Amino acid sequence: MYERFCHVTDPIHQTINPVEWYVYIILCSDNSLYTGVTTDMERRFRQHAEGKGAKYFRGRQPVRVVYLEGAHSRSSAASREIRIKAMDRTEKLVLISGRTAIPLSLNA
């Protein structure tokens, strides 16, 4: 069962490569943005499109993946997902565009 979640690179189990997790944002048919985590983006998008994924997609369809961030453990992906879900739409759009948001100051 242990090998199911990790790829063991040596017989003594000294070097282990954990499964890579991704954080993603999907643009939906109602123009909303859905954030989630997965180990397989193609499979997860297909599940959402078939109505077998999150309940969020009942009544709306996924249009396309607009943001994908890899190199996460399960724990770091879940933490990042929470931080992204706490963002407002404008902050998410800045993240998706790759731009850095610069706060405006009236004293500048």
Rank of each mutant, 00 (worst) to 15 (best):
H72I: 01
K52N: 12
Y56R: 15
A77T: 01
L33V: 06
P18W: 02
R43S: 09
H72R: 01
V37T: 09
A86C: 05
H72M: 01
S32T: 13
Y34T: 08
V94K: 10
S76E: 09
E69H: 09
Y67F: 12
P11V: 10
A108K: 15
S75F: 00
G53D: 07
S97Q: 05
L106S: 08
A108E: 13
M1S: 07
R74K: 09
E91A: 14
P62Q: 07
I82M: 08
G51W: 06
L27M: 08
S105M: 03
I102G: 00
L104V: 04
T39D: 13
Q61S: 13
E91Q: 15
A101W: 11
I12C: 02
M1D: 06
D88S: 06
S76A: 06
N31K: 12
H72G: 03
N31I: 00
A77N: 05
R83D: 06
S105Y: 12
Y34N: 14
I84G: 01
L104C: 02
E81D: 00
I96W: 03
Y67H: 14
S105I: 03
E20A: 05
D30L: 06
Q47G: 02
I102L: 00
W21S: 03
M1P: 10
Q14T: 08
K55S: 13
D40Q: 07
E42W: 04
D40M: 02
V65D: 11
G51M: 11
T15P: 06
G98Y: 10
K52L: 12
T9L: 15
I84F: 01
W21F: 11
R83M: 09
S29F: 03
T9W: 15
C28A: 15
P18G: 06
T100N: 05
R74N: 04
S32H: 06
L104T: 03
S73W: 01
K85E: 01
T100G: 00
I102V: 01
D10Q: 12
R74S: 00
E91R: 12
Q14N: 07
A77L: 09
I26H: 07
R43M: 10
P18L: 06
S73V: 01
Q14S: 10
R43N: 13
S105H: 12
A49K: 15
K92A: 01
T90H: 07
T9K: 12
G36Y: 04
R58M: 10
L95P: 08
E20F: 02
G59K: 15
T9S: 12
S79G: 02
E81K: 05
C6L: 11
H13Q: 10
C28K: 13
T90M: 03
K55N: 15
G70K: 08
H13L: 06
P18Y: 03
G51F: 08
I96A: 02
H7N: 14
A71R: 15
S79I: 01
L33F: 05
G59P: 15
S79N: 04
I102D: 00
A49F: 04
A78H: 07
C6V: 15
Q47L: 12
Y22T: 01
T38S: 08
N31R: 11
A108W: 09
H48G: 00
I25L: 05
G70C: 05
T9N: 11
Y22L: 07
I25W: 02
R74L: 04
Y67G: 00
C6K: 14
T15L: 13
G98M: 04
G51T: 07
M1H: 08
I102K: 07
Y56S: 15
H48N: 09
G53I: 04
A78D: 03
Q47D: 14
